[in-house]
Amino acid sequence: ALRETGVIEKLLTSYGFIQCSERQARLFFHCSQYNGNLQDLKVGDDVEFEVSSDRRTGKPIAVKLVKIK
């Protein structure tokens, strides 16, 4: 799958939103999709991810998040 990059724009307890670098979009992500310690993730962090689609709504979502050092 194609990896994309973006910036954490909003972060809540169990989910957040990424502002994409490659496209004009804000993508939802669930915190279970982040492969690191959530305490280390904060607004403004650069992340890399794959784009999938929500099974219920069909909308694009970010999965398999990795923080870019």
Rank of each mutant, 00 (worst) to 15 (best):
S21L: 13
T57K: 14
I61P: 02
L38I: 07
K67D: 05
F28P: 06
G58P: 04
P60L: 10
L2W: 02
Q39N: 13
Q24V: 13
S53Q: 09
A25Y: 15
S52R: 10
E48N: 08
L12E: 10
V66D: 08
F49E: 00
F28G: 05
L2Q: 10
I68G: 12
S52A: 12
S32Q: 05
F49M: 02
F28I: 06
L41I: 05
S52E: 14
T13E: 03
E50I: 08
G36H: 05
P60D: 09
R26F: 07
F29S: 01
K42N: 08
F49A: 00
I8K: 00
P60E: 15
V63E: 11
E4L: 11
Q19L: 08
R23F: 05
I8M: 02
F49I: 01
S52N: 12
R3H: 04
L41M: 05
K10W: 03
C20L: 09
F29V: 03
E4H: 06
R23Q: 10
R26C: 13
H30A: 05
V43G: 06
P60R: 11
G58N: 14
H30W: 13
S53A: 11
D40M: 07
R26W: 04
R3M: 07
N37E: 07
N37Q: 13
I68K: 06
E9Y: 08
Y34P: 09
T5Y: 02
Q24K: 11
K10D: 14
C31D: 03
L38E: 09
L65W: 02
D46M: 07
S52I: 07
E48P: 00
Y34G: 12
L27S: 01
E22L: 07
S14H: 03
E48C: 06
K69G: 14
V47S: 00
V43Q: 09
K69Q: 13
A25E: 13
T57S: 13
E50K: 06
R26A: 10
K59W: 11
E50D: 08
L38P: 13
N37C: 09
L41D: 01
F49G: 00
H30F: 08
Q33H: 06
L65N: 02
E9L: 13
Y15H: 12
E4V: 08
D54Q: 07
I61V: 09
S52F: 03
G16F: 00
D46F: 10
R55G: 13
E48D: 14
I18T: 01
V47L: 11
I8V: 06
F29M: 02
D40A: 05
F28A: 10
R26E: 12
K67A: 11
G36L: 05
K42V: 09
Q24I: 09
P60Q: 14
G58Q: 09
K10H: 06
Q19P: 00
Q39W: 12
F28N: 03
T57C: 08
L41Y: 02
V43E: 08
K69L: 08
R55V: 10
A62R: 01
C20E: 05
L11S: 03
V43N: 15
D54A: 11
D54Y: 07
E48L: 03
K10G: 05
L12K: 14
Y15I: 12
L65R: 01
S52K: 15
Q19T: 14
L2E: 12
Q33C: 14
N35S: 09
Y15A: 07
H30N: 14
K67P: 05
S53I: 14
L38V: 06
D46T: 13
Q33L: 04
Q33Y: 07
P60C: 11
V43C: 15
L27D: 00
R23C: 07
I8F: 01
K59S: 10
T13M: 03
L38W: 14
P60F: 06
Q39G: 13
L38A: 12
I68R: 04
G44M: 05
I18R: 00
T5A: 13
E22I: 04
K42S: 14
L27A: 03
F28R: 09
I18P: 00
T5N: 04
F49H: 00
C20D: 07
A25V: 10
V66I: 14
L65Q: 01
V7E: 11
V47P: 00
G16V: 02
I61W: 14
E22Y: 03
E9Q: 11
K59N: 07
D45Q: 11
K59P: 06
E22Q: 07
E50Y: 08
V7Y: 06
I61R: 11
S32R: 09
L11A: 03
H30V: 07
E4C: 04
T13K: 12
L65I: 10
S32K: 03
K67F: 02
Q24W: 04
K67L: 09
E48R: 04
I61N: 14
K69Y: 03
D40G: 12
N37T: 15
